[in-house]
Amino acid sequence: MDFNDGIEARHSVRSYTAVPLSEEERAALSQEIARSNEAGNLHMRLVVDEPEAFSSLLAHYGKFRNVSNYLVLAGTPAPSLEQRCGYFGERIVLAAQELGLSSCWVGGTFKRRLVKRMASADDRLVLVVALGHGEGKGHAHRSKSADAVTSIPEGTEVPAWFGAGVDAALKAPTAMNQQSFEIGWAGRTTQDGTPFASIRSKGGPFSAVDLGIVRLHFEIGARAAGGSFRWEDSWKSFLPEYGL
């Protein structure tokens, strides 16, 4: 399975078995976390065999069951922190999918004070991702159409890879399935002829985190279809560093 396949296969899972992560799974996740922390200037951390964070009534109300492993997403406070947590956190989520693990992004239904102690005192805790051996594979949610999340001038012909990127972006997990983003294409290029794509958030809960996740999905989908592009804003694609 590659990351494009992972996008197709991965769905949110809230119920897990009691099977612990193997040493091999822990090692593989830790390696990916270390790489992403370095590339994204983050302080993400894998916590294993710790069931207290999801033992509250709020977690029970959120239908979380047997969560004892989770990824803590945190870093030095900065305007781009949430978006970087989304981008690189989803990179870990897709790596977990490759290992046959399930996952779920979690914004609030965990004991925040307890999890905050897992991070440095100077860091800001953004959210967590539940990880483990899922009781099921989850299921797909309803999605908006490509037209609803793109901005393309009338009569403009877009390349096939742009459509593939948008399709992958529509499969990105977003808070409350809000899909509050817009990806743009205007045909502009850099001086060397590399086309630009744009992306913006339309707001909503955890919208900056969502934007990072959507960026990664678009990049993976577009590049799998042979696309080469640059973002119009200052965001750098980190896919080449990962060999994708």
Score class of each variant (00 low, 15 high):
residue 242 Y to M: 09
residue 208 A to S: 15
residue 27 A to D: 12
residue 140 A to T: 13
residue 153 P to E: 15
residue 209 V to S: 01
residue 103 S to N: 10
residue 68 S to C: 11
residue 1 M to D: 03
residue 52 E to S: 13
residue 88 F to N: 04
residue 177 N to L: 11
residue 204 G to I: 13
residue 2 D to R: 06
residue 242 Y to L: 13
residue 119 A to W: 03
residue 233 D to E: 08
residue 102 S to H: 01
residue 74 A to R: 00
residue 207 S to D: 08
residue 198 S to T: 15
residue 149 V to W: 06
residue 195 P to H: 03
residue 108 G to A: 07
residue 130 A to I: 11
residue 18 A to N: 09
residue 11 H to K: 13
residue 91 R to D: 11
residue 131 L to Q: 06
residue 180 S to G: 10
residue 129 V to T: 13
residue 31 Q to S: 14
residue 60 H to P: 02
residue 48 V to A: 13
residue 96 A to I: 12
residue 194 T to L: 07
residue 23 E to C: 11
residue 131 L to N: 08
residue 78 A to M: 06
residue 234 S to R: 12
residue 30 S to L: 09
residue 244 L to A: 03
residue 53 A to H: 02
residue 23 E to V: 15
residue 60 H to D: 12
residue 61 Y to E: 12
residue 242 Y to K: 05
residue 102 S to D: 05
residue 124 R to E: 15
residue 190 T to Q: 10
residue 229 F to K: 04
residue 22 S to V: 08
residue 240 P to E: 13
residue 184 G to T: 07
residue 19 V to W: 00
residue 28 A to L: 05
residue 161 W to M: 07
residue 34 A to Q: 15
residue 46 L to H: 05
residue 186 A to I: 05
residue 143 S to M: 12
residue 169 A to R: 02
residue 221 G to N: 04
residue 44 M to Y: 04
residue 152 I to H: 14
residue 205 P to M: 07
residue 26 R to G: 11
residue 177 N to S: 08
residue 4 N to F: 14
residue 143 S to W: 03
residue 72 V to L: 05
residue 102 S to R: 03
residue 111 K to C: 08
residue 93 V to Q: 00
residue 140 A to C: 05
residue 23 E to F: 07
residue 174 T to W: 01
residue 214 V to C: 00
residue 182 E to Q: 12
residue 47 V to A: 14
residue 12 S to W: 08
residue 57 L to Y: 11
residue 31 Q to F: 02
residue 120 S to E: 05
residue 132 G to C: 03
residue 85 C to A: 11
residue 69 N to V: 05
residue 97 Q to T: 14
residue 88 F to K: 06
residue 155 G to R: 06
residue 96 A to G: 09
residue 117 R to M: 08
residue 139 H to D: 14
residue 94 L to I: 02
residue 113 R to Y: 07
residue 56 S to V: 04
residue 50 E to D: 14
residue 126 V to G: 08
residue 236 K to E: 12
residue 92 I to V: 15
residue 119 A to I: 02
residue 97 Q to A: 10
residue 131 L to D: 07
residue 230 R to Y: 07
residue 84 R to F: 06
residue 43 H to A: 15
residue 118 M to K: 09
residue 186 A to T: 14
residue 186 A to Q: 14
residue 78 A to T: 15
residue 143 S to H: 08
residue 128 V to K: 03
residue 123 D to Y: 01
residue 162 F to Y: 14
residue 73 L to M: 12
residue 153 P to A: 13
residue 211 L to T: 14
residue 61 Y to C: 11
residue 119 A to Q: 05
residue 3 F to I: 03
residue 114 L to S: 01
residue 65 R to G: 02
residue 104 C to Y: 00
residue 128 V to Y: 06
residue 193 G to W: 01
residue 198 S to E: 09
residue 178 Q to C: 10
residue 153 P to C: 15
residue 172 A to M: 04
residue 100 G to V: 08
residue 185 W to E: 08
residue 84 R to N: 09
residue 184 G to D: 10
residue 168 A to G: 07
residue 117 R to H: 09
residue 17 T to N: 00
residue 146 A to W: 03
residue 80 S to H: 09
residue 215 R to S: 09
residue 114 L to E: 06
residue 14 R to H: 01
residue 113 R to E: 15
residue 32 E to T: 14
residue 215 R to D: 13
residue 111 K to F: 04
residue 191 Q to D: 15
residue 126 V to M: 02
residue 100 G to W: 02
residue 39 A to V: 10
residue 79 P to R: 11
residue 125 L to N: 13
